[in-house]
């Protein structure tokens, strides 16, 4: 039987770890709620944009823009991988990297010039370990990505796309579907393909109001397209942030439960060890007394 004191020590340390994981779980839950609220606020914005696009289409404008068109020859492509800065979030980063690696390899084989940008320390380390050279690193995104910062990145991509230094942009991130389901996905953001965030535009034809366009429908379209790209990129960052918190919440919940089970088991072994130690001591005393009497 193991040493009772060693068992007690181990039990204490597990108890401390359980305290930490439980706190982390609570923090992740709070952050998840906050991140979720932000994601919903962004949805209000994207819905408005979708509505405006719907109105433009209803006004008979042919929706065409350089950002929407597929280029014939793709020379320079870029991949943006969104990971987390911190660990202890289960399989969150691993699943992103698992999705990213084959994609990057495949693109490098078929396209002449592929650069990889990464957001998050974990992704930087993970890709460097797998031998991928990283061009740009963004380490300033935590659980609440700021639009101003995402916009800066978006603008640099846009200006490179317009000037022809970039022909295609893929973003690899974790899409948040529900609290129990997040999938690592690849999305091509440049060229945009379609406007309107692939939601059904059933509200577009609902109202029969004639709109006045100031200064003109074309001018508005010129602005709508880059804006919707920026908002989509922002949505990717928000989704990634929410998914990270969910993953951490679940991982820490599991850790706390496991620690509880372990403590239970250790307590049982400890009690047994203690009991047998006491029995041993009593035997010794009785043996001593009997030796004295004899």
């Amino acid at each position: 039987m193991a040493n009772a004191r060693a068992l007690d020590k181990r039990r204490k340390s597990i108890r401390n770890i359980r305290k930490i994981t439980r706190t982390m779980e609570l923090i992740a839950t709070a952050r998840y709620k906050k991140a979720m609220d932000r994601a919903q606020a962004a949805t209000a914005y994207t819905e408005q944009i979708t509505r405006i696009v719907g109105r433009l289409a209803a006004a008979g404008l042919d929706v065409q823009h350089p950002l929407l068109e597929q280029r014939d020859e793709i020379k320079n492509a870029r991949v943006l991988v969104l990971t987390s800065n911190r660990g202890l979030c289960g399989g969150y980063n691993a699943s992103i990297l698992r999705e990213a690696m084959p994609r990057i390899r495949e693109m490098k084989e078929s396209l002449p010039n592929v650069d990889v940008d990464v957001s998050g320390k974990r992704g930087v380390d993970g890709l460097a370990f797998r031998g991928v050279t990283i061009d740009e690193k963004h380490l300033n995104f935590e659980d609440q990505p700021a639009y101003a910062e995402v916009e800066k990145i978006a603008e640099s991509y846009l200006s490179r796309y317009i000037t022809g230094e970039l022909d295609r942009l893929d973003v690899i991130y974790t899409k948040f579907i529900s609290t129990s389901k997040q999938i690592a996905t690849v999305e091509t953001l440049l060229p945009l393909g379609s406007l309107g965030d692939d939601t059904d535009q059933d509200d577009a034809g609902g109202t029969n109001v004639e709109y006045e366009f100031l200064p003109s429908a074309e001018s508005i379209l010129e602005e709508v397209v880059p804006t919707s790209f920026k908002v989509r990129l922002f949505k990717c960052f928000l989704d990634a942030a929410v998914s990270e918190q969910v993953a951490r919440m679940i991982a820490m919940k599991g850790a706390t439960e496991n620690a509880g089970d372990m403590i239970k088991q250790l307590s049982m072994t400890y009690n047994r060890a203690r009991q047998s130690q006491i029995t041993g001591e009593i035997m010794e005393i009785i043996g001593g007394v009997e030796a004295l009497e004899g």
């Binding site: 405006i52 109105r55 433009l56 109001v209 004639e210 709109y211 006045e212 366009f213 100031l214 200064p215 001018s219 508005i220 010129e222 602005e223």
Partner: peptide
């Protein structure tokens, strides 16, 4: 503050989308 100058809006204005 519109793209090409200011626009004042009072109650009852006709529907409009502007840049």
């Amino acid at each position: 503050p519109m793209y090409d100058g200011s626009v004042g809006i009072l109650p009852g204005r006709a529907p409009m989308i502007g840049r």
